[in-house]
Each structure stands twice: as structure tokens, then as C-alpha cells.
Design a protein around this nucleic acid. Structure first.
Lengths: 207, 207
DNA sequence: CCGGAACCGTACCGTACGGTACATAGATTT
DNA sequence: AAATCTATGTACCGTACGGTACGGTTCCGG
């Protein structure tokens, strides 16, 4: 939708860097102009507004992350399980990333102003792609008879909860990501194992 | 140390109200002084600092919430299940409360400054009591033979994930609590049902 | 009745930041 | 070569807010 120019991308990258380093308070228009060797006037010309800049940062960051669609070949149950584990580790990796945390903090800190525009943006560009990818994966598993569920969304939310627990909020509150996302593979394996016990073939559907 | 005087409590209550209504930006010292009919000088005398005020707000709010210890009588499995469901609904209720959301947003918004003091405070006074209560409940269930697990913390985190999913972050990002905590009892029942399938008696422990 | 402590209301100060204006320098077009 | 467009850097403005100072008032103990 808004492919920025390379120059603008560089400025946005710089802005993300500032945000990660010092939080929102460190991201001032003057500071960004100085750090990125551009003028404040250009900032306002390009992004219109400080809020516009923040929004642009989110869409820019989202444009960097690509969510690989599931490879269609999914022959064995073992492959499918591995795919789920990869998803789980990816999810934990993304959520514990510095930039992700900084942007989420930013959006949450502004969730009261103007209808939570940034929050909506973050949900749409950040969470939705992940959600769609996971749901596609789940339904693929169901098609192959590895999973059994009637409500895809419910299954997805359960999977998310089993993987993340309350780790995301704890990290957002300042807990060290290392402490939360520690031993990511183990945690991913456990979550997937639990998920299979709830939704795997052979488990009766919940009602 | 922090039993505040009634007058100070009233001021803190007023501050919470301002925070809920308009977010952090609406919570200015001058505005609070005006709304609470007190002087800025008193604010600084009592709380030392704006950050001190924010910290006081958190401890004050925490002091209002009491977590009932589990009643020791827990004869039947049905009673225990009901207790778990009550915990689940309580948890969803607390997390979707206006004041809780506002304070979490506040702490997250400041999670970059001075070692995330507010975040630590929130974890200690807000989440820890809930965690302890839940763990006590879980271990009570294990003592009665209703549950089977080796790692209490792991079981607790799983329970938390099954109940909350990513609803907390979504609400923090501005999604309507009604949309997330909608149909709380159904969601609580589902989560407890799933939890029993993972950790209930008759389920082999995970390893 | 007196003196002091606590507190209110207001005024004030310094500063930081969002946003605008302008003067200058390269680059691109005509 | 002249003109135009774009971008930089600096200077500037208005405002909002954290923090402090001060005069006036109420309340309480002696």
C-alpha cells in the first residue's frame, strides 16, 4: 500500500533503532532528524505527522517480516508436527524480538488516543498474518487427518495460549526476554505435545 | 510504609479515575490537583515525584484487590472443578477491568525507563498474588488426587494460557474488552475442560 | 489565645517538544 | 545555462508540563 522510497526506509529504520534504544521518549522529531541526517521538514512532508511517522514505522516493520505460506507437501505426521514446532518457535522468536516489543509498547502506550489507531494497525499487519498462516497450517493438518477440530479459531487461540502463556505481557512489562523465551525449543515442543493431546486425531472433540 | 492516609487514598482514587478516562496524557500533576482539590505541593510532598505517584497508584489499587485463599474444604471433584472455573472467570474479569488495563498500559508504556520499576511493581503486586492463589489451588487439587503434574509452575502457566490466550494483549492494544472477554463463563469452562484433559487424573504426565 | 503544622490555590520558571518558516545546496529538467 | 524540484540544517514559535515558591487559610495542641 505504501511502499516507501529507499531513503524513507532508511529513515524509518533509524527511527526503529531509536525507539528500541530509548523507548518512545527517545523518539523525537528533532532527534530522528539528527540521527538520520534528514530535516524535520522532510519528516513532516513524508509522514505528515508524528502519528503518521509511528504508523509508518509499524507498516514498514511489518513489510520486513514475511510469513512463509506452508509448503503444500506435508506427507508425514512427523513433518506436520515439525511444522507446528517451527511455527511455535517462530512465534516466540518474533514476540521476544526487540523491535516487536518496542512497537507493541508504543501502540499500547497510545491505545487510549484516537481510537487506538496504532493498536489496530499492529493487529492487522503484525498479528493477522501470523494468525492466518497458523490457521492455514491447522486446516492443512485437519485435511490430512492429523488434527480434529470443528472451530478453527478456537483451535488457533488454544495453540497460541499453549505456546505463549503470559510471556508476552511479562516481556512487555520489562521482564528480560531471555528469562521468558528461554529454552524456546523445549517450550515449543511441550506446547505442541499438549496441543496434540487436545486436538490430535484420536482425541474426541470438545463440547 | 504504604498505608496511605484516607485523604491520600482519595487522591489516588481520583488519579486512577483520570488515568482510566484519558490515559497517561490526561494524568498531569496540575490536572490531578484540580480534580482532587488538592495542591500540587501536597502531591510532591506525599509522593515525592510523578513516578512516585504512579507507583503509589499501583500499590493502592493492589491493596484494594484481595485474593481469597481457597477454602480448605474441597470434598468433591465437582467442587474443585467449580473452584477452577471461578478462578478462570475471576482472572478474565480482572484482566478486562478498566483500571487493570489502564495500569498495565501505563507500566508497559514506561517499561523502558529506570529498569522498568513500574512493571516490576505490577508483577509483584498484581500478578504474583493471583499466581500464588492459583498454584495453591492446583496443589490442593493434586493432594486430593484430582490433578497430576510434577511441575507446579508449568501447570500454572498452561492453565493461564488456556484461559487467557492472547486476549490480554489484544485488550491492551485497544480491542474492546467486551469482544475479548465475551462469554466469559463459556470460555472458562472450555479452558478448565482442556486443562483437565492435560493434567487431570487419568492423563499421563507429560515428558 | 497563640504558634505551628499541614494544606490549598495560584502564580511562576525552565525546558522539551511538535510543528512551521526560511535560506541554502544539489540534482533534474527544459 | 536557467529554472524547478527536492532536501538539508537551522532558527523560531507556541504550548504543555514537571517542579518550585509563596501567600493565605484551616486546624490542632498547649
Amino acid at each position: 500500500m505504501e511502499p516507501f522510497t529507499p531513503r524513507q526506509n532508511a529513515v524509518l529504520e533509524c527511527a526503529l533503532q531509536l525507539l528500541v534504544a530509548g523507548g518512545e521518549r527517545a523518539l523525537t522529531t528533532a532527534g530522528l532528524a539528527r540521527a538520520a541526517n534528514c530535516s524535520k521538514e522532510s519528516l513532516y512532508k513524508w509522514f505528515g505527522d508524528r502519528d503518521g511517522l509511528l504508523a509508518a514505522m509499524i507498516t514498514y516493520q511489518a513489510s520486513k517480516v514475511r510469513t512463509p505460506g506452508p509448503r503444500e507437501s506435508m506427507p508425514t505426521l512427523d513433518d506436520f508436527t515439525r511444522s507446528l514446532a517451527v511455527f511455535a518457535e517462530d512465534l516466540l522468536g518474533v514476540l521476544s524480538g526487540e523491535v516487536s516489543l518496542a512497537l507493541n509498547r508504543l501502540a499500547i502506550g497510545q491505545a487510549d488516543r484516537d481510537g487506538a489507531e496504532l493498536g489496530a494497525l499492529l493487529r492487522e499487519h503484525g498479528r493477522l498474518p501470523i494468525e492466518l498462516r497458523a490457521k492455514a497450517l491447522l486446516e492443512l493438518g485437519r485435511r490430512h487427518g492429523y488434527l480434529k477440530f470443528s472451530d478453527t479459531h478456537e483451535a488457533y487461540e488454544t495453540l497460541y495460549g499453549l505456546i505463549v502463556h503470559d510471556g508476552h505481557v511479562r516481556m512487555l512489562l520489562g521482564e528480560a526476554p531471555a528469562k521468558v523465551a528461554d529454552d524456546r525449543p523445549r517450550r515449543a515442543r511441550l506446547a505442541i505435545s499438549q496441543f496434540f493431546r487436545l486436538y490430535g486425531q484420536g482425541a474426541q472433540d470438545i463440547r
